[in-house]
């Protein structure tokens, strides 16, 4: 299955219901958001998760009969079928305010570099891997996107189409 497929398959609830070997389960997706960011499963209570192509997971409010041949179903939230699952910028902006860990708050200047797609040297005491990047907007920390932290460096993984010189 390629990324141009329009077939969406609902994720099986658990391992026991899995029919496609590498497909993530709903339970794994919920656990991943909880383990990695402290986003509780209840946040996604009303959403179903769907795979289109190999590994791209979409979150859709409500449900449909599976599989369904359609151009879009909610929003892409996660890339699976790789060693380190990667959340999308859009998922982080939409659901990231529920996160309680692995979020890194940037200054305005650092956030500007991040949105331009620049990597930067930063101190971070927590886990390496994908972090939710926040900065202060209108008086509160607001989720902005996804960064990849390794070896004292925060890589901006803002997709090219979302980068901005601010």
């Amino acid at each position: 299955m390629s990324d141009t497929s329009t077939r969406f398959d609902r994720l099986p609830a658990t391992d026991a219901e899995r029919t496609v070997e590498q497909r993530a389960t709903r339970a794994e997706v919920l656990d991943w958001f909880d383990d990695r960011f402290g986003i509780e499963p209840s946040v996604f209570e009303e959403h179903t998760f769907w795979e289109r192509g190999a590994g791209k997971i979409w979150a859709f409010y409500g449900d449909m009969d599976s599989p369904v041949d359609i151009e879009g179903l909610g929003m892409t939230v996660l890339r699976t079928r790789q060693e380190h699952w990667k959340p999308t910028l859009e998922a982080v902006q939409r659901f990231g305010d529920h996160a309680t860990r692995n979020t890194i708050a940037l200054s305005r200047e650092q956030a500007t570099a991040f949105m331009a797609g620049d990597d930067q040297t930063l101190a971070w005491d927590g886990d390496w891997g994908y972090l939710i990047v926040t900065h202060e907007l209108a008086g509160e920390q607001e989720p902005l996107g996804v960064g990849l932290y390794t070896y004292d460096e925060l890589q901006s993984v803002v997709p090219k189409g979302r980068r901005r010189e601010l």
């Binding site: 959403h47 859709f60 449909m64 359609i70 151009e71 879009g72 179903l73 909610g74 929003m75 892409t76």
Partner: peptide, 21 residues
């Protein structure tokens, strides 16, 4: 135009949307 629709919907965090061509 549907690509633009999908991009706008994702940017704005819409999840209740099913798109057909």
């Amino acid at each position: 135009r549907v690509s633009a629709l999908r991009s706008n919907a994702e940017r704005l965090g819409v999840t209740n949307l099913a798109i057909t061509i």
